[in-house]
Amino acid sequence: MVELSVVRLEYSNVTMRFAQSGRGTLTAVRDVSFAVHDGEVVSLIGPSGCGKSTLLNIGSGLTAPSAGIALVDGERVEGANAHVAFMLQKDLLLPWRTVAENVMLGVEIQRLPLAERKKRAEKLLASFNLAEFSAHYPHQLSGGMRQRIALARTLAVDPHVLLLDEPFSAVDAQTRMVLQRDLAQTLSKARKTALLITHDLLEAVTLSDRVLVMSARPGTIIDEIAIDLPHRDDPFARRHDPKVNDYAARLMDRLEISRVAIESQAAEGAA
């Protein structure tokens, strides 16, 4: 399916500890190693607080790991990297910039010529059917449109690797499905590599080539499940495949969601 050729993103024995006031250190992530190959989409799932977002920050160079290294295109990540772009649950659009100006933020920071910036913004907005809104301000748009603009801004810098931290968890279920399809098509067309953090098991199964399962804190990778299904570029088609449910059920079991839920209820009752 995907040629496992070049490694785009790699984590090698990454450990992250945070100092806690008066209580020693907290290990968020312990000894995590995995690689994402060129054009591959890998999802990372795990319970809340297992350090998924920490891994993303390390990959984008915003935080340095306590031990181990992250590599992008074989080069060690030290500080922000022009080949990596991230997108969060929050759209982080700047209210004083028009839609087009928001899309151009990254390329403006990277000092591309104005003509090139405009060309990229126009092309991306057209591909997301947002061309007519390019002169609008963010507050005039719906949550789904705003999130699509955030995706366009992420793609405008033409990154090799996209780091996506629950990008669609703040929008309603139907909008989310449309956004998932847009993302899947874009990633496949542009052959981008992506690491997707999500809580949504179906999202992980329908959008990815592989799913990595993390344990509760300190987070480590406890399982890796290859999604051996067609239509990675079309989550609607995948959703019709009955095997999707088998994968989702397997992920659910692996995460021990029912047991964790009972435990947390018990803990609440005791408190």
């Binding site: 920050n57 984008s60 160079g61 915003l62 922000a80 990297n81 022009a82 990596v84 772009a85 991230f86 969060l88 929050k90 982080l92 700047l94 933020l105 990254g106 403006e108 920071i109 990277q110 810098v157």
Partner: peptide, 23 residues
């Protein structure tokens, strides 16, 4: 200022001056 906005700018390799003037 939302630290995530600063991080967004930093992820695009913004300089300190760019973070100030743009964010």
């Amino acid at each position: 200022v939302d630290p995530d906005l600063i991080n967004l700018a930093r992820s695009f390799k913004a300089t300190r001056a760019q973070i100030f003037w743009l964010i």
